[in-house]
Simulated assay, not measured.
Amino acid sequence: MLLSGVLVVALAFPLAYGAARRGTGGAGVLRWMCFSAVPLVTTLLVLGMLAGFETIDAGPMGTPVLIGGALLLALLARLLYVRGSGATFAAAGERTALGVTTAIIALCAYWAVGNYAQEKGQADAELLSHNLHLRPAVLLDTSERLSLAWPGVRETPLPEAEAGAHFRYRYEGLRLLAQSGNRMFLIPRRWTWDTGNVLVLPVDAGVRVAFHAG
């Protein structure tokens, strides 16, 4: 969405400039376009500040999008005005202000992306909690007792078929949440969003894992 917005702005800027310059009184049209952006910029900034202080509910991305959008619109209006009027671009002091404005816009973009990622991750986790049947079921054999008193998880001592049997306990009712490197994250099949547990299990010679559907 952000990249699409940047693409639209990148295309609209030269089109607006060229259309205004080709028309009668092109410089005046450009100045009018620039000054007409002032109320919109002010409104977006005010809404962004209110959202930042939680006076209004604008969602997790409201504050950075509103503030960043307002500053981006103001920056583009200023650049358009300079090009339309033919004036020398930006005095030294204004260049500093433009640099700070650009930095804040970039910060708002990162802020919005970070908030989106967090919101998406929480939504995916909550969706998964209601659809645990989509995760692979795990049959876990271990050499040591794990003492998992979790709802839905059953512990069964394995028969010692021969002396020195390596795996002694079997656990059923687990599901694979994720795997990262040599670690597996296992959850009980009756896992809940509020009271669920996660078993972080190293994948080594001390465990034997089998996956199955159901």
Rank of each mutant, 00 (worst) to 15 (best):
L2W: 08
V6L: 14
V8H: 09
V9H: 09
V9G: 10
A16P: 00
Y17L: 15
A20W: 00
A20T: 00
R22E: 07
R22I: 03
R22D: 07
G23K: 01
T24H: 12
G26R: 00
G26Q: 02
L30V: 12
R31W: 00
W32V: 14
V38I: 09
L40S: 14
V41I: 09
L45D: 03
L47V: 07
M49C: 14
A51I: 04
I56H: 04
I56R: 05
A58T: 09
P60Q: 04
L66D: 05
L66A: 12
G68N: 03
G69Y: 03
L72R: 10
L73I: 13
L76R: 03
R78F: 02
L79E: 13
L79S: 10
L80C: 09
G84Y: 00
S85A: 11
S85F: 02
G86S: 03
G86A: 05
G86T: 04
A87V: 10
T88N: 07
A92F: 09
T96G: 09
A97E: 12
A97T: 08
L98C: 05
V100E: 06
V100M: 10
V100L: 06
T102Y: 11
A103S: 04
I104K: 00
L107S: 07
Y110T: 06
Y110C: 14
W111V: 00
W111Y: 05
W111K: 00
W111I: 00
A112E: 02
G114W: 08
G114M: 04
A117P: 02
Q122R: 14
A125S: 05
E126T: 11
L127I: 09
L127S: 13
S129R: 02
H130P: 01
N131C: 08
L132D: 02
L134G: 07
V138N: 10
L140I: 14
L140Q: 13
D141S: 15
T142R: 08
R145Y: 04
R154F: 12
E155D: 12
P157A: 15
P159E: 15
E160C: 08
A161Y: 15
A163V: 12
G164R: 08
F167S: 04
G173E: 04
R175C: 07
R175F: 06
L176M: 13
L176G: 07
L177M: 03
S180I: 14
G181Y: 04
G181N: 10
R183K: 13
R183A: 11
R183N: 12
F185N: 13
F185D: 09
F185R: 07
F185P: 01
L186T: 07
I187R: 05
R189N: 13
W191R: 02
W191L: 09
D194G: 07
G196Y: 01
G196I: 05
G196H: 03
N197Q: 12
L199I: 08
L201I: 06
L201Q: 05
P202M: 03
V203Y: 14
V203H: 15
V207P: 05
A210G: 15
H212R: 15
